[in-house]
Design a protein around this nucleic acid. Structure first.
Length: 425
DNA sequence: TATATCGTCATTACTGTTCC
DNA sequence: GGAACAGTAATGACGATATA
């Protein structure tokens, strides 16, 4: 180790080559990393028989008479000095050719439209058009013209393709591989070549983007093709791996739940002015998507019997007629954290929402209703991510599920004061 | 009167983006 | 590369209206 370890030169030492700060850093890091595991007193000394050629630099030769502490101290001083020197040199040579050269070395991004961030309206339009073209070409040249042929990619028989599709060579994606696989790169290249040839020159007869001033690169097209591939691969995996399918279905269900909560919030927002007029207070504070109830069509249990029983209870509670037995019914699952006051505020709002809906339905003579909702009084125990006002929180729920749990206590955020008209205010 | 077309609402499916 | 999220398109069901 010692021959890799640089030492400082003393005032009387012969001049030697200077080390750059980077070299010093590296050497120090090497030394420190090793000295952490080897007690300084046990630091090995170079073997007496070590030949001089093993020492990379005469200046790096060990000085065994120095203590480890003093060597470290000297090293740190040297690094500080070199850093200061380097800073001064850089400041002085702000316009030095070396610096300019380094700047020019930075490779420009090969993409123009890869990300929509920072693009102008026209660029975004062109980007959308190109994505669509890339997608269509991808479908065409891989024979994915309908859902029913989604399996065609992992097969090798082209004879069962419709004659209209067989007029050109069908390339295959390899969905079991990533975007870097040669098979897939071949398809991306083909797609990019086709769209690039058609759309690169605004004066050509095939150009159809409509914004000749907007430029793009072939790499953009490759990127779009890869994005399409990832989406199709995900679908393919869902079709071929039951575990993936289960995960995707679970994610889709979660997505639906979020959408329904947003819908609930949007409907309640429509009744805010009516509520303000009637109750002389603003209920906007409770209208966070996060605070909305879940509306579920089936419990998350995998057990078929449990789901069937739940379904029977919902149908019964919704008073569905004999011809409506297969209709959707959702169960309302309210947040467990919410107080009686918050719950009542929601009920009052919903009453006004329903009133509005009835008026609207009468006006348009609508018959079709929404999916009926049933409330069995069940609640969920998710911790709200948005900050609560004190009046919203159910103290018994907090005591049972949060109090005493340091981790959870840190995640429930509560304002210090209630908004006007709520709680004690 | 039958039916074709359009508009609206509720809901779902799909796609693109961002973050990790 | 995957998960989460957001925005948009698509779908289904229905009423209103125009037209033959």
């Amino acid at each position: 180790m010692a021959h890799l370890f640089p030492t400082t030169s003393g005032p009387n030492d012969p001049p030697g080559p200077q080390l750059s700060p980077e070299q010093w850093h590296y050497a120090l890091a090497q030394f420190l990393s090793q000295s952490q595991t080897i007690p300084p007193t046990q630091l090995p000394t170079p073997p007496a028989s070590a030949s001089p050629e093993l020492v990379l630099d005469p200046m790096l030769a060990p000085q065994p008479q120095q203590s480890t502490e003093s060597r470290l101290e000297a090293l740190e001083q040297e690094i500080t000095r070199l850093k200061a020197e380097k800073r001064a040199t850089e400041d002085d040579s702000e316009s030095a050719p070396e610096k300019k050269r380094r700047k020019r070395k930075q490779k420009p991004s090969p993409y123009v439209l890869k990300s929509s961030a920072g693009l102008c309206e026209e660029q975004i339009k062109v980007r959308k058009l190109l994505m669509q073209k890339v997608k269509n070409e991808g479908k065409r040249i891989t024979g994915r013209l309908s859902d029913s042929d989604s399996d065609s990619d992992d097969g090798d028989d082209e004879s069962d393709l419709p004659s209209s599709q067989a007029t050109h060579t069908i390339l295959r994606y390899n969905f079991a591989a990533t975007v870097t696989h040669a098979d897939n790169i071949k398809v991306f290249d083909r797609i990019a070549d086709l769209v690039w040839t058609e759309q690169r020159d605004p004066t050509s007869s095939t150009y159809s983007l409509g914004y000749p001033n907007v430029s793009f690169t072939r790499e953009d097209l490759l990127e779009f093709a890869e994005t399409n591939f990832r989406s199709w691969k995900s679908k393919w995996k869902g079709e071929h791996y039951p575990e993936v399918r289960r995960k995707q279905e679970k994610a889709a269900q979660k997505d639906r739940q979020v959408l329904r909560r947003k819908e609930l919030k949007a409907n309640r927002l429509k009744a805010v002015s009516d509520y303000k007029q009637k109750y002389k207070r603003d209920p906007i504070c409770i209208l966070e998507t996060d605070f909305m109830s879940d509306e579920i069509s089936a419990p998350s249990a995998d057990d078929e019997d449990t789901r069937d029983e739940h379904r029977r209870r919902l149908v019964k509670a919704a008073h569905l007629g004999p011809t409506q037995q297969r209709n959707d019914v959702w169960e309302v699952i309210r947040p467990g954290f919410q107080s009686v006051e918050m719950s009542k505020t929601k009920n009052d709002l919903d009453e006004l929402v329903n009133k509005r809906r009835e008026t609207q339905n009468k006006k348009t003579k609508r018959i079709r209703g929404r999916v009926p909702r049933v409330n069995f009084g069940n609640t969920h125990n998710r911790i709200p991510r948005s900050t609560l006002y004190p009046f919203m929180l159910s103290q018994p729920w907090y005591d049972e599920h949060v109090a005493g749990n340091e981790e959870l206590e840190g995640t429930v955020m509560i304002f210090s004061k209630d908004p006007r008209g709520f709680g004690d205010s």
